[in-house]
Amino acid sequence: MEHSLSLWPRRVLWFCLLAAAGCIADLWTKQVVFASSELFHGSEWWLIEGHVGIQKSLNEGALFGMGQGKVWLFAVFSILAAIAIPVWLFYYRAAEDFWLTTALGCIMGGVLGNFYDRAGFSGLTWDRFDPTRQGDTIYAVRDWILFQASDQWVWPNFNIADALLVCGAIGLVLRSFYLAPDEDDPKKDKVS
């Protein structure tokens, strides 16, 4: 048990570092991209011509634009996730597993980054995005990463928070099905 307790400060620090770094990277890149007066549809900046670029868009829904207009519902889900993740990690002791801590740190960074936008903290108004709503505060996730295989196959724009959420979810799936428990896992030491 003593060995398990010595893990906690490191796991708390690791979780907080991942969540904070992910959220900061997300919010900083959004700020940089959305400060530009360009980069709307038709004025993209291509990193790899016709395939990977930067283009501003707003999403009032969730994954792939599902649930458009239900921004407050997704904001509530974000709050619930921001409460549930630390409870799972630190009350139910999932933090004893490095992979769970890592996956949930990534997810928390993504949750916080997108919640910031859904709560309207970005300070943006709809002006150029939707002139009929000019002056209204934007309560939508700022997306900016553009990816397409061709003009017919265009992936919905996304951001770093979305990438963190997906990577964290993949990490949870991999941990569930494929990865062995941590060497630090006290359950491993139990004799059946």
Rank of each mutant, 00 (worst) to 15 (best):
Q31K: 13
F129S: 02
H51G: 12
D182R: 10
T132A: 15
V111N: 06
R128A: 08
G22Q: 06
N114R: 01
I48L: 12
G123S: 14
Q31V: 01
T101A: 04
I170M: 12
T101S: 08
G105V: 08
A19M: 10
S57H: 04
P186K: 03
Q134E: 15
S150L: 01
L18K: 07
S192I: 12
C16E: 03
I48T: 05
S176H: 12
D185P: 03
Q68R: 14
T29W: 06
Q31T: 11
Y178N: 10
D26M: 07
E44Q: 06
R175Q: 10
P181M: 12
V173Y: 07
W45G: 08
E2K: 09
G110R: 03
F121Y: 15
G61L: 09
C106P: 07
Y116W: 08
N159S: 07
H41T: 09
N157H: 05
V166I: 13
G53T: 08
A169H: 02
P186M: 05
G65Q: 05
F158G: 05
R118G: 01
A180K: 15
G53I: 08
L5G: 07
Q55V: 15
V33R: 07
G123M: 08
E49Y: 04
D97Q: 14
A81I: 03
A119H: 02
A62R: 10
S192V: 09
D26V: 04
T137M: 09
L89I: 07
F64P: 04
L5V: 13
A81W: 03
C16V: 14
D117Y: 05
L124A: 13
W153P: 00
A25L: 15
T102H: 04
S6N: 13
T102N: 05
I145D: 06
W144I: 03
L18W: 10
N157C: 10
H51R: 08
E38Y: 04
E49G: 08
G120W: 00
N157L: 13
E183C: 03
D26W: 04
G67Q: 04
W153L: 08
G65I: 01
W99E: 04
R128W: 00
R133Y: 03
S36T: 00
L165G: 09
L47R: 11
D184T: 12
F115Y: 01
A19N: 07
A84V: 10
V32A: 05
K187R: 15
V111C: 00
C106T: 01
R10Y: 13
V191M: 10
V52E: 02
L63M: 12
L63F: 12
T101P: 06
Y91D: 00
L58I: 07
P9A: 12
A161Q: 00
E38L: 06
W46L: 05
W99Y: 03
Y139K: 10
K190D: 04
T101V: 03
P186G: 09
